[in-house]
Simulated assay, not measured.
Amino acid sequence: MSQDSPKVAVTSLVKSFDKLPVLRDVNLEVYAGEVVVILGPSGSGKTTLLRSLNFLEQPDSGTIRVCGHGISIARGQPLSREDKQQITQLRQKTAMVFQAFNLFPHKTALENVTEGLISVRKMEKSQAIARGRALLKQVGLAEKADSYPAKLSGGQKQRVAIARGLAMEPEVIFFDEPTSALDPELRDEVLSVMRQLAGAGMTMIVVTHELRFAREVADRVIFMEGGAIVANEKPAVFFDDGASPRIKQFLNRY
């Protein structure tokens, strides 16, 4: 795990929806090879923070730097042309895995994985197909290459979504509640793939309620409440040694 400069750096991030504060002066750094899990109650700002990192949500103010591409946002100021170029470059270095899979229903598993390679990266179709098949094999779905999403279980859909993200060779993957729509057996399929990625050194930021995953795989656990980061600890401290009464109360619910 490199400690040279952070892969993700967030400074003084603020975001409101209809004057309701959702992120309050959030500061965070994530280094190469780190797995950072974000926990917190519903409405704490976890997903908004994650979506702000690749500008699926535009913050009101603050600075975001991801994989060497930085944008400073001033309240009330539109994004400049250079800012938009930075966002495009930032997105090319990251991947997002969503709770709802977001697969193309009219495309097979293989076509979902290769779509970005062909349309965005302009890769030769034969080369993209070879890479797509290798990635489906990596997530345990080689035999489902020609299946459409409607014929896949939730866990299989999420693994296809992970393969699709990996196809673009991201430096950082953001996971937004990747297992919350799945039953326990299917959750384990997805978490197993995520463990493999962590073991291979992928930088990951994961919003989840999977406490066992956080305890066993995370390098750091972030706890958010009321739009702010109220704890940023190693798992041993977060779960065992230094948990505040509020965090203990939260953990006892799961």
Rank of each mutant, 00 (worst) to 15 (best):
R253L: 12
A145Q: 13
T63W: 12
P78F: 09
L13G: 00
G201W: 10
Q127A: 15
K84P: 05
G45S: 06
P105A: 12
S119W: 10
L50K: 15
D60Q: 12
M123I: 12
L211V: 08
S12K: 13
Q127G: 05
L56V: 05
E124Q: 13
V217R: 04
V172N: 03
K15W: 04
E210N: 14
A161R: 14
K234T: 13
Q58S: 11
D183V: 06
R24P: 03
L20R: 12
L166Y: 00
G154I: 03
S153Y: 02
A95V: 07
R195A: 11
S42C: 09
K125H: 12
F98V: 09
E169N: 15
T208L: 07
T94D: 08
S52M: 01
D25H: 06
P245D: 15
V113L: 10
F250T: 01
K7W: 12
K248Y: 09
Y148C: 08
G43N: 07
A9V: 13
V36T: 03
F55W: 00
E143Y: 13
D18M: 11
A150S: 12
G45P: 02
R164I: 04
M194T: 01
D188Y: 11
V193S: 09
L79A: 07
A198T: 07
V10N: 02
S147E: 09
I73E: 02
V160T: 01
T203Y: 12
R24D: 15
E143W: 08
A218T: 00
I38P: 01
D241E: 15
R133L: 10
S12H: 13
A134M: 08
K144S: 09
V30R: 05
P41F: 02
M202D: 02
E210Y: 06
G116S: 07
G76Q: 05
E143C: 06
R51M: 12
L28F: 00
R91E: 07
K46R: 06
E169P: 05
G33I: 02
F17Q: 08
I162Q: 03
